[in-house]
């Protein structure tokens, strides 16, 4: 009993195993893949035939300026705001996080692994949507590729941060899905998910553009056109990220 006990943190192998396990959980939750991958694809396929012919800005079509930014934002928002919180709420509710807390793995590892898997999922959603848009409907890549990529990454952070608030406040897995869906559709509606922000009253549209969904759509659209991204949109996304992370850090419970 006198041997020295050392602290040994789980190594790379444990992290990889956990990420693979989380990925399997996500893939096996087939219904959870419908909203992030298929719903945006459906909107793309339905709008692309007409939007692809509609030239709006400097030779770019409505598909590139409006539809693709919207579709890509939907992918991010549905994964970040609906799926990730529902997994975390389920893990907390069923005691999975507590069970991990009595092993050398910290429950925070699960959080990180979920984020990694969500990012991979978002990249798959991005690849599928872009492949369909480019190959089937002749869309062109963003004029300012670097800006588009940076905006996409920032929007991803903002959506996950909003999702962390949902995970922190939802008492049960079902309520996490409900709160996630409501948040998703509210942000989406204000951000122009239903018929574009032009169809909203000016005041509502102005608010929607300050929220993460609307800000992400507007900033991605600017990057696609090659215009300067409005700093106000970037600030909106940044503020959403900070508020989300801070709220989650304050309110998140492991059990």
């Amino acid at each position: 009993m006198s041997t020295v006990i050392e602290t040994r943190r789980p190594g790379v192998n444990a992290w990889l195993t956990l990420v693979v396990c989380e990925a399997k959980m996500v893939v096996r939750d087939t219904s959870g893949l419908v909203v992030p991958i298929l719903l945006p694809l459906l909107i793309l396929v339905m709008s692309a035939p007409s939007a692809g012919d509609q030239v709006v800005d400097g030779g770019l079509t409505a598909l590139e300026v409006y539809v693709l930014p919207l579709v890509l934002t939907m992918v991010l928002a549905s994964i970040g705001v609906i799926n990730m919180p529902s997994f975390l709420a389920y893990y907390r509710r069923t005691g999975i996080l507590r069970r991990l807390a009595v092993t050398p793995a910290s429950p925070a590892m699960v959080l990180v692994a979920q984020v990694v898997v969500s990012v991979l999922q978002a990249l798959v959603g991005l690849a599928v949507a872009l492949a369909v848009a480019f190959l089937a409907f002749g869309a062109r890549p963003p004029t300012d590729l670097g800006a588009a990529f940076a905006v996409y990454a920032l929007a991803m952070a903002a959506m996950y941060a909003v999702g962390m608030i949902v995970a922190a406040v939802a008492p049960t897995p079902n309520s996490a899905v409900a709160i996630g869906l409501i948040t998703f559709f509210a942000l989406g509606a204000l951000g122009g998910m239903f018929g574009g922000s032009g169809s909203l009253p000016d005041a509502v549209a102005a608010v929607g553009e300050r929220l993460p969904f609307g800000a992400a759509v507007a900033a991605l659209s600017a990057a696609w056109v090659g215009a300067a991204v409005d700093p106000a949109h970037l600030i909106s996304l940044g503020v959403a990220t900070v508020i989300g992370v801070a709220t989650a850090a304050l309110l998140f419970r492991w059990d």
């Binding site: 396990c21 399997k24 959980m25 939750d29 069923t94 005691g95 999975i96 507590r98 069970r99 009595v102």
Partner: peptide
């Protein structure tokens, strides 16, 4: 090593 009274594991694994 701990076995908790009510602990669930990842259901789909």
């Amino acid at each position: 090593g701990v076995q908790l009274q009510q602990a669930y594991l990842h259901g789909a694994l």
